[in-house]
């Protein structure tokens, strides 16, 4: 199979705002995920990464409205609502959420939370389901007896592992990981990344990593999409984004990321992202862009190819090294 598992085209998400001023949180995002892909969605918090993923997975709430197209194996799932998405949920597309503490139900054991999503062919007994849950825990480097534990009895890293085990229970083809290492210490972060890396190799999983941390992205993913104010502003191989960022935002984001041993000053990006409840004219980043020119406030730049498999949305692309 070489066709994409997941095709997202021109996805838009709005949230109802007070007084009819809707927040346009995701604006025309498109991407493909093929088997074994390692894609990252990168950006500051509030840039629409998580909303994009929730929109793709059909997990938005009643205050959201959407447009565009999401196809799984060529089958449209966005417009069909919950019923259309149901057969793919957890089976083909599963997700590991950020903040493992609250992602697990505090009053149920880890095992029961894993077991409840195991595919039930025929009559799988409770005992067999728990055994299978134990195997999954072993797969992510935990002891099988942890099935009987409640989330609060596990450390943060262990909870994140349990979440990953739970995500594997449906034998997915694409695993979304939403900030899987936030709130973990550095050593545990590295272990979780390593685990995801190993699992992706062993199981042929495609991974979509959502992160604000470019350093993390480089360790796990080979392709990245940088998002700003709900829009994809640059997209390409992670290597290319590092060495030759074509959008000023990507460059600044990279400069704002601490890298061990790198001999360069750490800079922060001044200002804050624009409000999304009013129509944006021109480039959304121009207010914070060090290179902004007059034309940046006139029209919004489109994603255009700047190198093989590398696109950026900036009027000044040609000039940016």
């Amino acid at each position: 199979m070489n066709g994409p598992v997941l095709e997202v085209r021109d996805l838009n998400v709005w949230f109802d705002g007070p007084g009819g001023r809707d927040v346009h949180a995701v604006r025309g995002v498109s991407f493909d995920v093929r088997p074994g892909d390692r894609l990252a969605l990168v950006g500051e918090s509030g840039c629409g990464k998580t909303t994009t993923v929730l929109g793709v997975l059909g997990l938005l709430g009643a205050t959201a409205s959407v447009s565009g197209s999401v196809r799984v194996d060529g089958q449209e799932v966005l417009t069909g609502g919950d019923a259309a998405m149901a057969p793919y949920r957890w089976g083909d597309l599963s997700i590991v959420f950020q903040g493992a503490l609250n992602a697990l139900n505090p009053v149920r054991t880890v095992g029961s939370q894993i077991a409840e999503v195991l595919p039930r062919d025929g009559r799988v007994s409770r005992r067999a389901a728990l055994r299978r849950a134990g195997e999954l825990l072993e797969r992510v480097g935990m002891a099988a007896r942890n099935v009987a534990f409640y989330p609060h009895e596990l450390s943060g890293g262990m909870r994140q592992r349990a979440c990953i085990a739970m995500a594997l229970a449906g034998e997915p083809r694409v695993l979304f990981a939403d900030e899987p290492t936030t709130a973990l210490d550095v050593v545990v972060q590295a272990q979780i990344l390593e685990l995801l890396d190993r699992l992706a190799d062993e199981l042929g999983l495609a991974i979509v990593l959502i992160s604000h941390d470019l350093g993390l992205v480089g360790q796990l993913c080979d392709r990245a999409m940088v998002m700003y104010a709900g829009r994809a502003v640059e997209e390409g191989p992670t290597e290319g984004l590092y060495t030759a960022p074509r959008h000023p935002y990507t460059r600044l984001l990279y400069e704002a990321t601490p890298v061990l041993g790198a001999d360069r000053p750490l800079r922060s990006i001044g200002g804050s992202p624009p409000a999304l409840d009013v129509p944006l004219a021109g480039c959304a980043f121009r207010g914070r862009c060090p290179d902004a020119e007059d034309r940046c406030s006139l029209a919004e730049p489109a994603l255009t190819p700047v190198a093989p498999a590398h696109r950026a949305a900036c009027h000044l692309t040609g000039r940016t090294p």
């Binding site: 604006r27 709430g61 959407v66 447009s67 417009t79 919950d82 129509p279 919004e300």
Partner: peptide, 27 residues
């Protein structure tokens, strides 16, 4: 807010691009 599936999926007809959103008025 809550995390239950909404009772209806709210689709919008995609306007050109998506950069300009309807601000107020009858949407």
């Amino acid at each position: 807010h809550d995390h239950l599936p909404p009772r209806r999926v709210r689709l919008r007809a995609t306007a050109a691009g998506g950069g300009e959103d309807d601000s107020g008025g009858s949407d």
